[in-house]
Computed example of a mutant assay.
Amino acid sequence: MISRRNIRVKVMQTLYTLEAQEQAGNPGEAAQKPAAKPADPQKILQKHFEQTRQLLSYLIYFITEVARYAETDSRLRSSKHLPSEEDLNVNIKLAGNEVLWKMMEDASLKKALDADKPQLQDNGELIRRLYLDLVATPEYQQYIAVQGRDKKSEKAMLEFIFSEKMLANETFVSHIEELYTNWDDDGEMISQLVMSYLAKPGSLDFQEIVSKEKKEFARQLLQTVIDKKEVVMDLIRPRLKNWDPERIATLDMILMQMGVVEFLYFETIPPKVTINEYIDLAKEYSTPQSGQFVNGILDNIHKELVREDKMHKINFKAN
């Protein structure tokens, strides 16, 4: 399901939000107005997880709507004033897809859709266009030409809708990017989850797409960075002597803090894994020079901790 990399991204984003809110405070205004209530870090983090679930449920919902549009198309065409023979004989095999109906009967998915209400989005025209694009393909024509049903072809058709008609469609991707700011962060992982779900409908708990272990890791990583900020900064500051603090990207500072916290308090994570993870995140989310910068700082801190025999990690659960 959600990887530790995605967990780190969501913790990073939460810390960035907190930092931005803190920097947004105006001392002049603060003297005249009551101080704003500090944001709850764990609630911000939970909201990121909810956005991931909403993205997942929306993609699956969209697959079902494109497939079920076969019945809508049949009804609309047969109700024309002067329907043609073709209008009166629209093939609706897709709407009865056996894998589709297993998905529609999934109690966990139903609960997620009831909560997220994807049907309220303005997506009807896009669903229609994707369906019409689908029926023009050789793959669809081959699918409806076979009268019987088998699990392999039923699954393959839904996978084709998702990967070749939805994800390969620029308009659809733009639609998703408009609705979900987390698409760039979660898109690849969520797409894999969708394909896994199509292979085995009912296999996901949409209310718990983050395992208890990973949710605890996220919660503790976030809280430990907040609680141990000064301890961590005492290790980082000496290495910033040749750098103008104001020119250090906020994300770089956050990533370094997270990395040092993992060095000190997360005993099951090897330091090399920590360093590599935060180098990658710095390269992807911060400036072109950030990967090298974060690598240098974290590597130096790690070497010093080893040299001074201070790499005795304390389990964060006991911290």
Rank of each mutant, 00 (worst) to 15 (best):
Y131L: 14
M104Q: 13
D122V: 08
M104F: 07
N91I: 11
K214C: 14
F172Q: 12
A112W: 01
L167T: 13
E177T: 00
H175I: 00
G124M: 07
S153C: 11
D186Y: 03
F162L: 08
D186K: 02
A156L: 00
L120M: 09
Q207S: 15
E159L: 12
I144T: 14
A112N: 08
V146E: 14
I127A: 08
F217Y: 08
G96Y: 02
A95N: 01
V194I: 06
R149S: 01
Y143K: 11
L222M: 13
E188D: 15
A115Y: 02
E177K: 00
N91Y: 05
K165F: 00
D205F: 04
Q207M: 15
D185Q: 05
I209C: 10
T137N: 14
A199D: 10
K200W: 08
E98I: 02
M157S: 06
V99F: 01
A218I: 00
K102A: 15
Q142D: 13
L132T: 06
I190P: 02
H175N: 09
S153V: 04
M157E: 03
Y197A: 13
P201Y: 08
E125N: 13
L198T: 03
E178H: 11
D133V: 01
L132E: 15
L158S: 08
F172T: 14
I209H: 05
M166R: 01
F206S: 12
M195A: 15
E105T: 03
E164P: 06
E188Q: 08
Y140K: 05
T137A: 12
D205M: 07
N169Y: 04
W183N: 07
K215N: 14
K117D: 06
T181Y: 09
Q142T: 03
I92N: 13
V173E: 07
A156W: 01
V146S: 10
N169D: 12
M189I: 13
K110F: 06
Y197R: 09
L134T: 11
R128L: 14
K93C: 06
M195Q: 15
E86F: 10
F160T: 05
L222V: 13
S196P: 12
G202R: 01
V99I: 04
A107T: 03
A168P: 00
V90F: 05
V135R: 01
D106V: 02
